[in-house]
Amino acid sequence: MRTALDAPAGMLDESERDFVEKIREHGWFDTAVFGDAEGPSFSFTSGFWVNTGQPELIMFGMKREIVHDVFWGLFRGAKAGEALPKGKATDKAFANLPAYSFPVAKRFYPEYLGWSQWFYGGNEFPCLQIVWPDRDGIFPWQQGFDPTFSSDQPDLTENGWLAALTS
């Protein structure tokens, strides 16, 4: 698989070289986007797919430090061959609460995964959205989810979280 890791350094600008160097050094890079009137904050990875064979990750509405720690733990797990289950509750993301992961529809890649698209030269990489519950452990698709958090995690699946759940 060809990536920006294969590009001659002279072909990259300073920010691109820095991005690639971080992936060479750590195996992945975390891009953080601040929230604003257009949408919530989010972070996503680049490098998981090429270095572990596991999907890239995206998570919304959490503090950057927490997301970064979660991504590090999941990267270590991916290096050890552990995959996040899709559409099932898991304790692999957070120590004290469950999470779900769902495949991100390719139609959302341009809006949310720009650096990963650049790194891979297109959309030929998988990505999972990690979804967290409210303070009572209720997920956005469940009855009783705290509406305070309703705009913190957009649904990036192809047909909705409910359709992506597996038993």
Rank of each mutant, 00 (worst) to 15 (best):
P8W: 10
F125M: 00
F48I: 10
E56Y: 12
F42M: 03
Q143R: 12
Q129D: 02
C127I: 07
A163Y: 14
T3W: 06
L156W: 13
L57W: 11
E82F: 15
S151R: 15
S116R: 04
K22E: 05
I58R: 07
F145R: 03
I58G: 04
Q54P: 11
D6H: 12
P140W: 05
K79P: 05
P133T: 11
P55T: 02
P85I: 08
G144P: 10
S116C: 10
N159W: 13
F48N: 05
G160V: 06
F29I: 00
F29G: 00
G81P: 06
E65T: 07
G39R: 07
R2F: 13
W72K: 11
T31N: 05
L156H: 13
P85S: 03
M62A: 07
Y100H: 07
D134T: 08
P8V: 11
D36K: 13
L156Q: 05
V67F: 11
G10F: 09
V131Q: 06
G122T: 14
F48W: 14
D134G: 02
M59A: 10
C127N: 12
V33H: 11
K22Q: 06
W118D: 00
D91F: 08
P98Y: 14
T157H: 05
A89I: 01
A37Y: 14
S151V: 15
Q54H: 14
N96G: 04
A4P: 08
S167A: 09
K63G: 13
K92G: 02
G121N: 15
E16S: 05
T3Y: 08
N96S: 02
G144L: 07
D18E: 07
E111W: 09
A9M: 01
M11D: 06
E16C: 02
M62Q: 09
F119C: 05
P85M: 11
H26P: 04
P55M: 00
L156K: 04
W161P: 00
G73R: 12
